[in-house]
Structure formats: structure tokens, C-alpha cells
Simulated assay, not measured.
Amino acid sequence: MPVSKPLVSIIVPVYNAERYLRHCVDSILGQSYRNLQILLIDDGATDASGDMCDEYAAHDSRVTVIHKHNGGIASAQNAGLDAATGDCIAFCDNDDIMHNNNVEHLLMALQKTHADMAKGRWNQIGVSELPVTIESASQAQSLGALTLIDDPLNAYQSVFCKTLRILGGAKTEARYFNEANWCRLYRRELWDGLRFKEGHYAQDIRMAGPLYARTKRVVDVNEVLYYWLQEPDSVTHSQRTPAFWHDNVTAAAENFEFTLSHGVVPYRNYFGLTASVRDEKLGLRESSRQQIHASQTNNDDYDKVRLLVARLSHRDRLKCRTLAIIRRGENKIYDQLIHAMQ
């Protein structure tokens, strides 16, 4: 970053988000750091979202709107990356809220530590919590404690069970990050030559390995800087089809192989592989419209998982299974909490 006030490009994929879009964009426009390029990518929305984007662009020169045919979130993210001119890149989902200090504090962390990526903490919120969240997100706060992570790919793969993060304390929690792109600030060059694979549900899982492998250093900011809106009927929480599970198996398999090739044990992807192929089988059994093709796909996925797991040492396989058991228990509790959110 050659200047003290670098331009930060914020990419917001927008699709049928008229209900919450204003909360999201207003939180970006209200950032304490002002040198922003705000890219609203209208991914063929069929509601008023596209018009709302144009309205924002007409009133703030920092906002650029790109209207495109619907191609999915990966396509929208790629369009944003292609149009971004900032020294740093950030992403925000179209129904989430960024804390007022999000960009400022993540940028300060990058500049202080010379890291490649800065990440903050986030809270999950229900729709009923939006008013108090908007108020809280507008309140200035001090920069949180910084923790450096010099092995991002290993941290991503090994630190993912909430139970063990609690037992491990603050240093372990700081090493946790998932494949989500929001509540991050990236140096632009990290994305050179990298684009999301389009036409898939799990585009972020596919990107995690290649992105974190080229990331030399991550800095964690111990501060809530993002609010993730939970809706039980969203794609993340309700999309449960054979195609969805198969895509998750395939994405985890790609990342599993990639991670192994870099000498890192893919603990997280082991869980993703085994959980998705199991869910795929259970879903097909419960479906009254089960198809032969889908069943064969599940058999192929099972064989793929078996062959990949066989590449692990007995010791690593045992640790993978142990972490997967812990994570499955946590996910049952997590799903109940999400569906109980109002």
C-alpha cells in the first residue's frame, strides 16, 4: 500500500435483498474510514434491489453499481474483483451490517503488522435484533488486541471446533477463521490471478485453500466488527438438495487434496467431506422422489471420500475423526439456535 490513506474497495453482491439492503449499505457509507470504492453488484435482482443500488450511486460518488445477468454469488464476487481499483479488498453480504470502525481498524491492523489479511470478530443476529445492532454498530470503539498468525492454511484447517477454541483460550480463538470472505480486509495482490469458481454453492470453500496458501501472515483483531444476519430460510441454512450436498463434497475434496499437497493435514475438510456425504445419503433415503442418478452420484462421492481419507496416516485419521465427532455435536446445537432466532 503506497499511500497512508489507501483506497479500499468493498464488494457487495446484491440479489433480491430489498428488505435488508439499506441497513447493509448505510453501514458501509457510514464507515469512519472514508476513502472507499463501494461496488454494488446487482446480480439480476428481480425485486427493487437494483433500483436501490442506483439510488445510492446517484447520491454518493463512492458508489458504483454493476448490473449483470444472474450468475450466482461467485459470478457477482468476480465481477466486483474485476472492477475493484483499491489497494485493499473487502466483501460484505447484502443483508449484513459492518461496524462503523470495520475498515479503519482492519486497515490499521494491516499497516501496523504488514500482514496480508486482517480479520475481525463477528456476531450472529436475528431480524428482531436489527434496531439495537444498528445502534451498536454506529458507536466508535478502541482498536482491539492484535494477534499474528504465520501459518494461515494450517490455522484454517485445524482450529474450527468451538469447544476446543473455548478450552484453548484467547490465543486459540484468535487463530480461528473460516472460509467466509466478510469481516476481512485483504491486500489487493492476494487476489491477483484468483477468481471464484462459478456455478457452485460452495464457491468459498473452493477458494479457501488457494487463498490461504498464498497468504503469508494474517492479523486477528479482537473486536466485533461485523454482524451476520441469520435467516433460517436462507440458502445457507435451508438449501438441502442432492446437488447441494454433492457440491459440498466436491468442494471439500478439492480443498482436501490441495491442502495435503502443501503438507498440511486437512482436518476441517475431512469433516466437510464426511458430513456432506453422510447428509447426502440420508437426504436421498428420506426423499420420496429419489432418482437413480442422484444415488449413483452419492456412491461416487462415498468412494471419493474413502480414497482421500485412505491417504491420511492412522494417527491423522484418528484426530480427524475425533474433531469431526466434536464438530457434529456442535452443529446440532448451532442449527437449533439458528432456527430459534427471530
Rank of each mutant, 00 (worst) to 15 (best):
P2Q: 13
L7R: 04
V14T: 09
V14G: 08
A17M: 07
L21C: 05
S27H: 03
I28C: 09
L29Y: 06
N35R: 14
L40F: 06
D43V: 09
A48G: 04
Y56A: 05
Y56L: 06
A58W: 01
V63Q: 02
K68L: 11
A84D: 03
N94D: 15
D95A: 11
M108E: 11
A115Y: 08
G120V: 01
W122T: 11
S136V: 02
L143F: 01
G144P: 06
A145M: 09
D150V: 04
Y156E: 06
V159Q: 01
T163Y: 11
L164S: 10
I166H: 14
G168S: 05
A170Y: 00
E173T: 03
Y176K: 10
N178W: 07
C183E: 13
Y186S: 01
L194D: 08
Y201F: 11
D204I: 10
D204V: 13
I205R: 09
R206I: 03
G209V: 05
R214K: 13
R217P: 11
R217K: 15
V218D: 00
D220C: 12
D233S: 14
V235L: 12
H237C: 02
T241A: 04
T241P: 03
W245A: 08
V249M: 02
A252C: 14
A253L: 12
E257V: 04
Y267E: 08
N269A: 15
Y270G: 01
G272Q: 12
L273D: 07
V277C: 09
E280N: 09
K281F: 11
H293W: 04
A294D: 14
T297I: 05
K304Y: 02
L308D: 08
A310W: 02
R311H: 06
R315E: 15
R315Q: 15
C320D: 03
R321N: 12
L323V: 02
A324S: 15
I325G: 00
K332W: 12
K332F: 10
M341L: 15
